[in-house]
Computed example of a mutant assay.
Amino acid sequence: MTEQLSLDIPEGVGEQVFDADEEVFLLYSTLQSSSPSAPGDPFRGLGHVDSKTDTLIVKIELTAPLSSKSGSTTTSGSAKESARKHHKKATSKNATRPDISLEVELWQDKTALRSRKGDTGSVLWKASVDFAQTILQELYFGNTSDRPNLLDPERLKASHVLELGAGTGLLSILLSPFVKHYTATDIEALIPLIRKNISSNTNDPVHANLPSSIKTAAHQHPSHISTQALDWLDLHALASPTLRTKYISAVSPEPVDLLLIVDCIYNPSLLPALVSTIDTLAIPERTVALVIVELRAEDVIREFLTLWLALDSWVIRRREGFLKGPYAVWTGVKTR
């Protein structure tokens, strides 16, 4: 029997979602109250980074918290007082924080965005950059806030992550060093673009400053990143459970521990297929689905949640305080 690695969200971490209307009201009320008329208006259109260029340089700036020379960032018990003293001492000497800058060059297909119907993944979206910034800050330097970790770094080391709608492949490049295996999936037409971006960033040490304590053995072997075509509509159209299992086995021979869905909720016609794909890929009591969505049309968010909640075998929780901006973050675990 294959050993299962559970990434289950602890009971009580995150508010459980029961009703789509209530969740949408809460999310958009909070969004409206966050300075809606300011220059940084949370409603910012579709959310492309730059859809008019063939290549992008994506920079992720990470800031290390002030800590002792030993590198400890522990803030419990007497260590809190020690950290406060060190902070005061360092500040008095005008100490600077050691920053880490990660840089990825990405190819886009701006022509396909306009000419290929339904293709939105051929350009980079802001949600992927913002999520990468937040999760890498946590993975590199630990959680310095009072909230629980979004993901457990130790469990990630032994986990298989499968991303739906990987688009340009940015997250596979940035997150793969932290996991056992990373599978980036999207429609067949986008697989060459994802592979090109992964290949062009393999030899360039994007994570040159990755501490050895959190670097996985798989990081030394780029082959631990897979790219696979996965069309939600094709999978959803398969009425037979046997055919669905066969389809999924071809895409992902090994079980999925973390199912990553970043900004894939935008087209109402795709929502039934997306929810069906999430449900088919998830292994009860093992797979955690992590959904990050930019809050655009309320009716689309409502429909997605309605469809997901209709699968009564799922426990869905809202995770607040992780991403700044017009986002919602949910984790879901299939119970049976």
Rank of each mutant, 00 (worst) to 15 (best):
A83Q: 13
F25G: 10
H219D: 15
W107R: 12
T30V: 10
S252M: 00
M1E: 11
A239F: 00
D109V: 01
N149Q: 08
S78Q: 12
D257M: 01
L162P: 00
R336Y: 11
K93R: 15
A328D: 01
I187P: 01
L124E: 11
K117N: 08
H221Q: 14
R319T: 00
L230W: 04
D186M: 09
V49P: 00
N94I: 01
V13M: 01
I135C: 02
D119V: 12
G325P: 09
G121A: 04
A184F: 02
I265K: 00
L62K: 03
A184T: 01
H160R: 09
S213L: 10
V161F: 08
D279I: 02
A158G: 07
V123I: 11
N149A: 08
G77L: 09
W107A: 08
T227I: 02
T111P: 00
A273H: 07
E320N: 07
S72F: 06
T227N: 09
G77Q: 08
I9T: 14
W107H: 11
H207L: 08
L136F: 05
S159F: 02
G167D: 05
S145E: 14
H87T: 12
H224P: 04
H181W: 03
S159P: 02
L7V: 00
K85S: 14
E285L: 14
Q16P: 11
G332A: 15
W308F: 10
W232H: 04
P65T: 12
P326V: 05
E303N: 09
D204F: 07
N203T: 12
I248G: 03
T73H: 13
E81C: 04
S72G: 05
P272A: 12
Y327C: 04
V179N: 05
T55L: 06
L136W: 07
I316W: 08
T183K: 00
R336F: 10
T242A: 10
S249E: 12
A218W: 07
P177W: 09
L210G: 09
V206H: 06
R336I: 13
S172N: 03
L235D: 04
D99Q: 14
D257Q: 11
T287Y: 07
S199T: 09
L243F: 00
F304G: 05
E294A: 05
T73D: 00
G332V: 06
T242M: 02
K89L: 11
I191R: 06
L259C: 07
V206C: 06
Q220S: 15
T287M: 02
L243T: 03
L27W: 13
F43I: 13
G118H: 04
T277E: 05
P98G: 07
D186Q: 05
L190M: 08
K246A: 15
E138D: 14
V251N: 01
R319K: 13
